[in-house]
Computed example of a mutant assay.
Amino acid sequence: MTRVRVTAPRSVNAGAARAGTVNAGSIPPDSTALAGGRSAAAAREAAEESDAGQLFIRSLIRSQLRLGLVVALGFLLILLAFPLLLGLVPGLAESTIAGLPFDWVLLGAGIYPVIGLSAWLYVRTAARNEARYRDLAGEQ
Rank of each mutant, 00 (worst) to 15 (best):
M1I: 00
R3M: 12
R3E: 12
V4N: 04
R5Q: 10
R5H: 08
V6A: 07
V6T: 04
V12Q: 13
N13M: 06
G20P: 05
G20S: 03
T21N: 10
V22H: 15
A24M: 07
G25H: 04
G25W: 05
I27T: 14
P28Q: 08
A35I: 03
G36E: 13
G36V: 04
G37H: 08
A41K: 05
A41Q: 12
A42V: 07
A43G: 09
E45S: 12
E45M: 10
A46F: 02
A46S: 08
A46L: 11
A47P: 01
A47G: 05
E48N: 13
S50K: 11
D51R: 15
A52D: 15
Q54M: 14
L55D: 15
I57C: 08
R58H: 12
L60I: 02
L60Y: 04
S63K: 08
Q64F: 11
L65H: 10
R66V: 11
R66Y: 10
L67E: 08
G68N: 11
L69M: 09
L69S: 04
L69Y: 04
L69G: 05
V70M: 15
V70H: 14
A72I: 01
L76H: 06
L80S: 09
P83F: 11
L84W: 14
L85E: 00
L85W: 12
L86Q: 05
L86E: 05
L86R: 03
L88T: 07
L88K: 04
P90W: 00
L92G: 03
A93I: 02
A93D: 03
A93M: 01
A93C: 00
E94P: 01
E94Q: 13
T96K: 07
A98L: 14
G99Q: 03
G99D: 06
P101C: 00
F102E: 04
D103F: 09
W104D: 07
V105M: 02
L106R: 04
L106E: 03
L106M: 11
L107H: 08
G110A: 01
I111S: 12
Y112S: 01
Y112K: 02
G116W: 02
L117E: 12
S118M: 09
A119K: 02
L121S: 06
R124M: 09
A126L: 08
E130F: 05
E130Y: 09
R132A: 07
R134E: 04
D135T: 03
A137H: 00
G138F: 00
G138R: 02
Q140E: 13
Q140R: 12
